[in-house]
Amino acid sequence: AERLAGMRPGTVLVNTARPDLIDEQAVAQALADGILAGYAADTLDGDTAASASPLLAPELAARVIVTPHLGAQTTQAVDNMGRMSLDDAIAVLRGDAPAHPVTR
């Protein structure tokens, strides 16, 4: 909320990273207060039921865009993900380290 309050009025905030980087309640309040002109994201916080998100309030609908976590679902992105996965699988089978290891 503090960082949002320091933004220039009329700012449009776009989150193309992870939903947990954003405090949805604080963003909704910044939109209602006119600090933010708009908000766009690839998905909402997974800990909140989508219908309960404050960002989906009817009074904010004209200034909020949320996709169902499909922002990276272009033909090129899907092809690249498949190619990277295959390259890593081949590297592991050869005894090499994968270029994109899963760390979780």
Rank of each mutant, 00 (worst) to 15 (best):
A1C: 03
A1M: 14
R3F: 06
L4N: 04
L4I: 03
A5C: 04
G6Y: 05
G6E: 11
P9G: 05
G10M: 06
G10W: 07
T11D: 05
T11F: 03
V12D: 00
V12I: 15
V12F: 02
V12R: 06
L13A: 02
L13F: 08
V14S: 05
V14D: 03
R18H: 11
P19M: 07
D20Y: 10
D20N: 12
L21H: 12
D23L: 03
Q25G: 10
A26L: 07
V27T: 10
V27E: 11
V27C: 09
A28M: 05
A28H: 04
I35N: 01
A37T: 00
Y39H: 04
Y39L: 00
D42M: 04
D42R: 04
L44P: 05
L44D: 03
L44Y: 08
L44G: 05
D45L: 11
D45C: 06
D45E: 15
G46L: 11
S51L: 07
P54L: 04
P54V: 00
L55R: 00
A57I: 02
A57E: 10
P58Y: 11
L60G: 01
L60M: 04
L60H: 07
L60T: 01
A61H: 13
A62K: 13
I65V: 15
I65H: 02
I65C: 01
I65R: 06
V66H: 05
V66P: 03
T67Y: 04
P68G: 08
L70N: 14
A72C: 10
A72D: 13
Q73P: 01
T74V: 08
T74G: 06
T74E: 10
T74P: 05
T75P: 01
T75S: 09
Q76N: 06
Q76L: 13
Q76C: 02
V78R: 14
V78H: 07
G82V: 14
M84N: 11
V92K: 09
R94F: 01
R94M: 02
G95P: 13
D96Y: 05
A97G: 10
P98Y: 12
H100G: 09
T103F: 11
T103M: 12
R104Y: 06
